[in-house]
Design a protein around this nucleic acid. Structure first.
Lengths: 177, 177
DNA sequence: GCGGCTTGTTTTAAGCTTCAAATATCACGC
DNA sequence: GCGTGATATTTGAAGCTTAAAACAAGCCGC
């Protein structure tokens, strides 16, 4: 009922549905790889520090902002929903890693900061974390890392463009160009 | 209290903790990118097909196995826990996409297959999905895709090695070499 | 054919995550 | 000062995810 699986060469003219197998394989490999690394990092954070990856990530956002960030800021940076951050922050305040107060300039907003204890804990974790990543990437030389950075940057730009345009084939709604 | 943040050049001898900034940045970019793409794919699957990404992924595993797979097989391939697959499968059986029966050769195992309806639904989704990915990667030429495949393969191999060795610094337990 | 280890699955508790709806506050124009 | 629309956050329901414990059935050596 469906053609298209077994005629890889030939059959290229004639509205053939342009096979994007290479792109698909690349995406799959990218996804597998980050799932793999992420899983390993999560496991190690749990085993050695009894902390979850999302909490670590949140603290990582905060460490470079000694004056704090609002929940929205964190949410955008982490690319997760607002509601998600609310819960994460609640648990981290509870455990003493975070300090949370109402913004002085905007009564809607909460400003969160690492507490001293939170900062200490994070530094210890971050140091090990950096070693783990370096170890996992130790099979690459400097040039390869450079090339990867560049190409992944290109993918990122390309993806962003595709996201702005919206799903292929979907008529642009409203937005006049 | 902590040194190390602001002395990027100089201070390289003397047990400097070998900065792995490049590796860390690469990992961060990789993670950001797959989070971005994954999020967009999830959003589109939901909007256009009212299906979740994990369900789509599970069906994708099954489509090339007309004779079915066991839950364990699926769990390994998807790199998620067994319990996770149990729940996913339950919902997909419920919705009529999957068929599940006890293995004829191993009474512990469940064999799952796509139903006809499941196969049809999956094909429709997969076709669009492929277009989405192709669109997001359209900023890259063939060579760049090739290079990325190769380099990511290398990262994968390197990561696997690091995972087998276990966390750096952790004494190998038991395993005599 | 009986232990003992392994493997396949399910269950449970806790936490993560999203989307959508509800609140509260702000910013702006008038 | 009062609407109006935008922004910041919280809440609730549903689903995803893991780790760990419990079970069932297979496999293997004796």
């Amino acid at each position: 009922m469906h053609e298209r699986v077994h005629l890889d060469h030939e059959a290229k003219a004639l509205e053939a549905p342009a096979d994007h197998a290479a792109e698909l394989r690349l995406w799959l490999r990218l996804l597998t790889l980050s799932t793999m690394i992420e899983g390993e990092v999560r496991r190690r954070l749990r085993d050695r520090f009894d902390v979850t990856l999302p909490r670590f990530d949140l603290m990582a956002q905060l460490v470079r902002a000694p004056d704090g960030m609002t929940l929205s800021d964190v949410s955008k940076r982490m690319m997760v929903s607002n509601g998600n951050v609310t819960g994460l922050v609640e648990r981290l305040v509870e455990s003493g890693h975070l300090d949370r107060r109402v913004s002085e300039t905007d009564r809607r907003a909460q400003v969160i900061r690492l507490t001293d204890a939170g900062l200490d804990a994070f530094r210890a974790m971050a140091a090990e974390h950096e070693e783990w990543i370096a170890e996992m990437l130790s099979g690459l030389d400097e040039d390869e890392i450079d090339t990867l950075m560049t190409l992944l940057g290109k993918v990122k730009a390309s993806t962003r463009t595709a996201m702005e345009k919206g799903p292929a084939g979907a008529p642009q709604e409203d937005v006049p160009r």
